[in-house]
Amino acid sequence: MAKIKKIKGSTSLNITSMMDMFTIILLFLLKSFSADGSMLTNADDLALPNSVSNKRPEEVSLQLAVTSDSILIDNATVESTMKLSETVQDKFDVDTLSLLDAQLKKHMRAEEEMVKRGILNEVKGEIVVQVDKNINFDILYKIMRLCGRNGYVNMKFAVMMREQ
């Protein structure tokens, strides 16, 4: 009789250790949680360079990403990187880059429109540029030049923070 009763009493699962574990995980995650979150999304084939910079990314309206095969504005492909590198410097201004150029112009116009309507105070011309670390300087230069021509003069290069 007594034996059966004992078995009945031990039906509940002992979850104390699991609760301990959960509490630790929860505390760790809460600690690493940042309220502002990540402003930048990172593409798979985009390896950002490491840097000692500790400036946190601010909220910016426009994102430009340059991977080894395509150039993306706000996560939509606009141009292939190959095409940009093939572009001859002297002919650069003409129309080979019409797609990227047109997109930048469009976004700049949108920003100006917002200033006119009083949604923004001023045209800041800020752009976050995420460039793959294996991109050569030639492409970077052309991108910077295009951004500059379209009024995006405050460029922010996204980098990976080196761990301390």
């Binding site: 930048l40 840097s51 910079s53 946190r56 003069v153």
Partner: peptide, 8 residues
């Protein structure tokens, strides 16, 4: 992720 500012 951090940023490096460059102004043109």
């Amino acid at each position: 992720i951090a940023t490096v500012d460059v102004s043109l």
